[in-house]
Amino acid sequence: MTDGGLDPLRAGLEEWIGKSLSASGPAVAPDEVNLPMIRHWVDAFGDRNPVYLDEAYARSTRFGGIAAPPAMLQTWTMGRPQIQGIAERGGSAGEIGSDNPISVLSAAGYTGTLATNSDLEFERYLRPGDRLESSIVVESISDRKNTALGFGYFVTWVTTYTVGPGEVVGRQRFRILKFKPGSDAVGS
């Protein structure tokens, strides 16, 4: 449900649509795709797919050798966390700049965040030694909506993952609702 036309806050966000949030270039994974992190992952999930750790078996498959679990895509480029101060930053593992639509919405009182959709696409499985890079583009920002959590805006961005100069290996489309807690909610 949309409550009217483009409000001034939303109008000010228009310039972000289609823009890269990676102004200083793609984020480069701290480490290459590697066996210790794959082992940590498959043990955490109890995933016994032999393609992820059994080299002899993996060689016999179409993957030609050990491949990383595809759902690890985002994990490779997660920044190194700054544990000290993480609670004071509201839970963010690193410093967040103010020059992005999420921070603009938070500063305007839309401090709540709810993830609503994740769409992952895989062009190929990653192999040990691959060094991943990621870049983020804002795809869309909704009009102001009146949701069960309060007034808010849906923000959608697409992260493109590459290996080397421009080989796209995967994408993630991610949508969140930035809402103002306690604002006039439907049915309350």
């Binding site: 797919n49 032999p50 393609v51 078996y57 498959t61 179409r62 993957f63 595809p70 759902a71 993830a115 609503t116 959709n117 994740s118 769409d119 992952l120 696409e121 895989f122 499985y125």
Partner: peptide, 13 residues
Amino acid sequence: GPEAMLRSISIRL
């Protein structure tokens, strides 16, 4: 099975 290759995972939370 292990020969399967995931092409996409789309979820609504």
